[in-house]
Design a protein around this nucleic acid. Structure first.
Lengths: 197, 197, 197, 197
DNA sequence: AATGAATGAGCCTTCATTCAT
DNA sequence: AATGAATGAAGGCTCATTCAT
């Protein structure tokens, strides 16, 4: 049996190894050799499949965003009312698939990488646009002209929760983090309800 | 040009250069040579005064935190009621001395550095503890047992606002950022008022 | 030119180059770059195979000691009486494989290195212990309780001969050096013979 | 009181510091800064008085040789017969002023330095010539044509004893070292006596 | 498909040395 | 007499990357 179709396997292994290595060291300052070793191959092969270190990082970032998107999509499937959908969006941000220590650390590092790499920034912008669009879609019926402001606040708080939980030395708690964001949402909506009446 | 007592001058120049260089490149991946050149001296002199790259970064971080602290302290001077003090704390976080593009970028990088450097983490912990203590001091009279939760939310949102504004390609707007955080505070306090009655 | 299994070849080339370079410059103050260039490769490769400058030196020292040991062992093969064996030990110390200008210079440098490097000292101790053990084994039957003293004298004179010959600007003469040491041995043994009778 | 005549004081302090530093580290790989600090002055001043690192080393070497010579001269004063003089020469080599751990270490390092520095070699040659001349002066009446060979052997053994004692981790014992060399002398002379008769 | 071999480029760091005061 | 200030030069080491097999 020739080793056909190794490519996707290798690529996936490298991406996982990248996230794991960033998670463990806390830095983007890791070598291709470390990543490749963790993925069980030579660094030459890593270059062969990805073309270079930057592209390995970008692929890992892309993968992280994809997992996040999938989580949100799946959460939205079961939600019908705007409020339920908003809750679903928030909670999916802190689902176990995203909100693990090593993923959080990678997130933060990608955030910083976006400040010096255009490609990384583009990826991050896509994520932001999608989150904003999702939030607005369900906030507008509820909050009208205040929707953009509220969406921005929620988006900022989501990132802030990542930052905070990521820094604590204890294991991150997605439930607590989500509660903070949900709380902001509920307060905003409650106020609108009371004002509107 | 006096030739004595250059040390404080050089150290300050290097710290400024460090923050400027991080701000411009967006990364901690800068060389001592770059920093020294920007500060108008040889890299050997930079080592002479600081001992090494890490210590230059730590000094820059320490300086950033010191400026922030000073800003908060000065803002608190004019505030008398707890609510006014809370507003002052929040707004001082987004005062022009802190909330400039290059400082924000440095902040983010220090945040990430804290994940791999114990010394950096220690500094950040000091900042967090102080912020939390400041918030709790004025929240407790107003919110009682809910103070810790509210404080955590506000702290997270402050950091989130940094992250968000720091990412936008446009110049950061401290006023907008502060408004988001103040809004959360006001909502929480309003709710307490209505519940209490 | 096979491209596999280069490691032993490269390592040997580097060790030879190290000894040659020390021999030529007279110092351990040589750069990895010099060694690598002499061995026909980049300094990066030298680091790759040895891990660092210190380890290159230690490997060269180990090699020198190994050659010396082999020489002694082979010389001992043909000797049967204790006296013949003692002569063999002494003469093997000044055999052409050891007693070449560049090897002598390396020896002296390693001797000095042993004063600041524990690893080097350990290697030298092994050599000393082995020489002493060899000498004692054949001196004891002949000299009884005086064996240790005589062994110490011979060992010291061997090293002294290295030092002296190594310093002369003319090519070292192993025969002369060996004669000095043998002379001491013979005098000691003769005296024992005359005393005993 | 102006600080007149500081020069000799400073120079002496630097020379002592150099020997102490070499003795403590075991290497010539010490910095001018270390030496100057130990001597209680700035490295700039060390340069001012000596002109450069090499010259500091040479001065220290010269000083060591001078102390040695003085020791020998003083020992020779009380000796009248050739044999007594020879013993005096040998024992003065291991007198406490020379045969201290740090001086021995410096000696060895100077020996090695002589392999790469012409100036150092010249100094060492002077010492060797003087020792050889001293030995021959008193050996010739006793040993005639064999005097040169015996002198060479003794000189070699003296150096060998330094090397050996210098390597042991225990404090060096001048008495033991001298005994080894004296022993060789006595054996040689005894043999001549018995042959001559 | 996979890797050992190999290197050029670059960075941190050290240090002897100089100079102005 | 003495030193802080300053630097150029150099070395060890790392690493992304390429190539031949």
């Amino acid at each position: 049996m020739p080793k056909l179709g190794m490519e996707p396997v290798r690529r996936a292994a490298l991406i996982d190894a990248t996230i794991a290595e960033i998670g463990q060291t806390g830095t983007l300052d890791i070598t291709v050799g470390q990543i490749a070793a963790r993925a069980g191959m030579s660094s030459a092969l890593a270059h062969h499949y990805f073309g270079g270190k930057d592209q390995i990082f970008l692929a890992a970032m892309r993968h992280t965003l994809r997992v996040y998107s999938a989580e949100t999509l799946s959460a939205l499937k079961g939600a019908e009312t705007p409020i339920a959908r908003l809750h679903a969006i928030i909670e999916s941000s802190f689902a176990p698939s995203n909100f693990r220590a090593e993923v959080i650390t990678s997130w933060l590092n990608f955030y910083v990488l976006a400040r010096s790499s255009d490609a990384a920034r583009r990826l991050l912008n896509i994520y932001h646009a999608r989150l904003r669009s999702n939030l607005l879609h369900d906030l507008r019926p509820l909050a009208g002209p205040q929707a953009p402001r509220i969406a921005a606040g929620i988006a900022a708080l989501i990132d802030g929760a990542y930052l905070h939980q990521g820094l604590g030395q204890s294991a991150p708690c997605g439930r607590t983090a989500a509660a903070h964001v949900t709380r902001l949402l509920d307060l905003e909506l409650a106020q609108i309800g009371s004002t509107a009446s």
